Simulated assay, not measured.
Amino acid sequence: MIEDVSLSVPADSGAPLRVPAWRLDSGKPGPRVHLQAGVHADEIAGMLVLHTLLPRLEEAAEQGLLRGSVTLVPQANPLGIGQFRHGRILGRVHEPTSRNFNRGFPASAAQERPAGNLAAWQKALATLAADADIVLDLHTDDEAVPYVYLHQCFWPAGQDLAAALGAEVAIIWEGDSDGAFEEVVIAPWLAEGCFDGRLVSTVELRGQADVSDDLAQRDADGLYAFLCARGLIAQAVELPQWRGRAVPIGHMETVFAPTAGVLVFERELGAEVQAGERFARIIARPGDPGSEQVLAAPQAGLFVTRYRDRLVPAGAIVGKFTGSAPSSTWSEGALDP
């Protein structure tokens, strides 16, 4: 019953690369679901989650519980997964073009003959998801509480996803997202004005180092429950009430490093902070007490993400917070470059 729907895309050298993908199709009426992970190839947690989820979905199909179809792409980016430099994977940006892997999807999908292998990969991935009703793109932040991005047209209907995954924050966006994958999925739905039974979300599964069997099982269980609730699997579930907070993307506060130096966090992720409260400091010249710069929260809110390394370059995003009013640092588009 499981079908191999793997993609073949050109490497930077032109040689073919395989994007492993599998589809379970019940042949019965139901939602069409597309799940993928690793568009940014250095975000590993979702790969393990889908690896954990696939056998459970196969079992449901064998038991005759599957309705509709589900496609899984556990490691979506073969271009980025090969970018190891000095023992570390550099997955966010395509080295030959310096382009963020998760930007420019609509432009690539619109090309009849994609110009370059990055565009060819983006078009192939977008085409694979084009007929889906529910699309979840699994990512991670540097270090973060679990949170989701949802377009305003899916809110509050998308609370079931946030509840199933235990997301602490839902960031609600509108307009465009600088060409991220979810934008190419949602574009025809926006043109139709039809959203019943549909959902697309970028799901942030905590931080890049949060890769473990326990967390993967927890997230796979959450996804399975969500898919049951949405009718893909004929199994009764009761989702918990969502107790997180929904924040317009323009109210999210991003704090940048004013200088390079040793980064010391004084508040933990998930902490509630007050406006003007210090949450970290940067020691620009260790040994010189006068070189310490204190970083404070611009608004009262929840500490959502923070920089992974503890030596920070000037201009890097040190942390993000929820806010109850528009941020002075945000302009249109995605939250991150």
Results as ranks from 00 to 15, higher is better:
E3S: 12
D4S: 07
S6L: 11
G14W: 00
P16V: 05
V19R: 13
A21Y: 09
P31D: 06
H51W: 07
L53T: 04
Q63F: 00
L66K: 00
S69G: 03
V70G: 03
A76T: 02
G82M: 08
F84M: 14
R88S: 01
L90G: 10
R99L: 09
F101N: 06
F105H: 06
F105S: 03
A107Y: 01
E112N: 12
N117M: 01
L118E: 02
A119Y: 02
K123L: 08
K123R: 12
L125Y: 02
T127A: 14
L128W: 07
A130V: 08
A132M: 11
A132C: 15
A132N: 11
I134S: 11
V135R: 08
L136C: 09
H139D: 11
H139F: 10
V148R: 08
Y149F: 15
Y149W: 11
Q159Y: 10
L161V: 02
A163C: 14
L165R: 04
V169M: 11
V169D: 09
G179S: 10
A180W: 09
A187N: 15
W189M: 10
G193I: 06
C194M: 13
C194G: 15
D196N: 15
V200N: 06
S201L: 05
A209M: 14
L215H: 01
A216F: 02
R218Y: 01
G222E: 10
L223Y: 05
Y224C: 12
A229D: 14
L232F: 02
Q235D: 14
A236W: 06
Q241I: 15
W242E: 06
A246E: 10
A246H: 05
F256N: 11
T259Q: 12
V262N: 07
G270L: 01
V273D: 05
G276A: 06
I282P: 03
I282E: 03
I282K: 03
A284E: 13
P286I: 12
V294W: 11
V294Q: 14
A296H: 04
Q299H: 08
A300F: 10
G301D: 05
G301V: 11
L302K: 05
V312N: 04
G315F: 06
I317R: 15
V318I: 13
V318M: 12
V318C: 08
A325C: 10
S327T: 11
T329L: 13
G333K: 11
D336A: 13
P337L: 14
